[in-house]
């Protein structure tokens, strides 16, 4: 009976990891998630790995890309037109 109450599926557990990360998980769900992680390596790894790339995603930059000289010239012209 108790087992039925606290057992959640991996689908549900990975879904709840997203709410936990955002700080909007209910206390009951947090308990269920922790109990699930105690017995499920896959879901525990899912949470660690996804929080890692979530935290680092914003570091992304295109370091070498640049606008062409023509495009920049065109932008300057468009702003001049807007000034007229």
């Amino acid at each position: 009976m108790l087992k039925k109450l606290i057992n959640i599926s991996c689908r549900k557990a990975t879904f709840l990891s997203g709410k936990k990360e955002a700080g909007v998980i209910s206390f009951g769900d947090l308990v269920k998630l922790k109990l699930h992680h105690a017995v499920c390596d896959g879901c525990k790894r899912f949470e660690q790995q996804t929080s890692f790339f979530g935290k680092n995603a914003k570091g992304h930059q295109h370091f070498s890309d640049a606008l062409s000289t023509e495009k920049k010239q065109q932008m300057k012209q468009l702003i001049k037109d807007a000034q007229a």
Partner: peptide, 8 residues
């Protein structure tokens, strides 16, 4: 949830 499943 799906973003994370696919990206991971």
């Amino acid at each position: 949830h799906r973003c994370k499943l696919h990206l991971r």
